[in-house]
Simulated scan of single mutants.
Amino acid sequence: MERISPRPIAGEREMLREALDFHRATLAMKCDGLSDEDLRRQSSPPSTLSLLGLVRHMAEVERAWFRRTVNGEDIALVWSDAGDFQVAYDASTSTRAEAFAAWEAEVDQARRIEREADSLDLTVYAARWETDITLRTVMLHMIHEYARHNGHADFLREAIDGTTGI
Score class of each variant (00 low, 15 high):
residue 91 A to E: 06
residue 134 T to R: 13
residue 114 E to C: 10
residue 86 Q to A: 14
residue 109 Q to W: 03
residue 133 I to Q: 04
residue 129 W to M: 07
residue 108 D to Q: 14
residue 128 R to E: 07
residue 127 A to G: 07
residue 139 M to E: 06
residue 103 W to R: 12
residue 131 T to D: 00
residue 117 A to F: 00
residue 92 S to C: 01
residue 123 T to F: 07
residue 117 A to R: 08
residue 85 F to Q: 03
residue 135 L to R: 05
residue 117 A to K: 05
residue 128 R to K: 09
residue 98 E to K: 04
residue 85 F to C: 04
residue 114 E to R: 06
residue 119 S to W: 09
residue 137 T to P: 01
residue 98 E to D: 15
residue 111 R to G: 08
residue 97 A to F: 08
residue 134 T to P: 03
residue 87 V to Y: 00
residue 139 M to S: 03
residue 119 S to C: 12
residue 97 A to H: 00
residue 87 V to S: 06
residue 87 V to R: 01
residue 130 E to C: 09
residue 131 T to I: 11
residue 140 L to M: 12
residue 100 F to N: 02
residue 99 A to P: 04
residue 108 D to A: 15
residue 140 L to W: 02
residue 140 L to I: 11
residue 135 L to F: 01
residue 118 D to S: 08
residue 86 Q to K: 00
residue 120 L to W: 02
residue 123 T to C: 10
residue 142 M to E: 05
residue 94 S to N: 05
residue 141 H to Y: 12
residue 127 A to Q: 03
residue 126 A to H: 08
residue 129 W to I: 11
residue 115 R to V: 09
residue 125 Y to S: 08
residue 137 T to F: 15
residue 136 R to V: 10
residue 135 L to I: 11
residue 93 T to W: 04
residue 130 E to N: 13
residue 128 R to C: 03
residue 126 A to D: 07
residue 116 E to L: 13
residue 97 A to K: 07
residue 115 R to W: 05
residue 123 T to Q: 07
residue 116 E to T: 10
residue 125 Y to W: 14
residue 137 T to W: 15
residue 122 L to H: 06
residue 113 I to G: 00
residue 90 D to L: 04
residue 137 T to R: 15
residue 141 H to W: 07
residue 139 M to V: 10
residue 111 R to Q: 10
residue 97 A to V: 11
residue 126 A to V: 06
residue 117 A to L: 01
residue 123 T to K: 08
residue 105 A to N: 13
residue 130 E to T: 07
residue 137 T to E: 11
residue 142 M to D: 09
residue 136 R to F: 15
residue 110 A to W: 04
residue 120 L to N: 05
residue 126 A to I: 00
residue 130 E to M: 09
residue 126 A to N: 04
residue 132 D to H: 11
residue 85 F to V: 14
residue 91 A to F: 02
residue 121 D to P: 09
residue 113 I to S: 06
residue 141 H to E: 13
residue 118 D to C: 03
residue 124 V to T: 01
residue 132 D to T: 10
residue 96 R to S: 12
residue 95 T to Y: 07
residue 89 Y to Q: 12
residue 95 T to L: 10
residue 129 W to N: 02
residue 135 L to A: 12
residue 96 R to C: 11
residue 110 A to P: 00
residue 92 S to A: 11
residue 134 T to M: 13
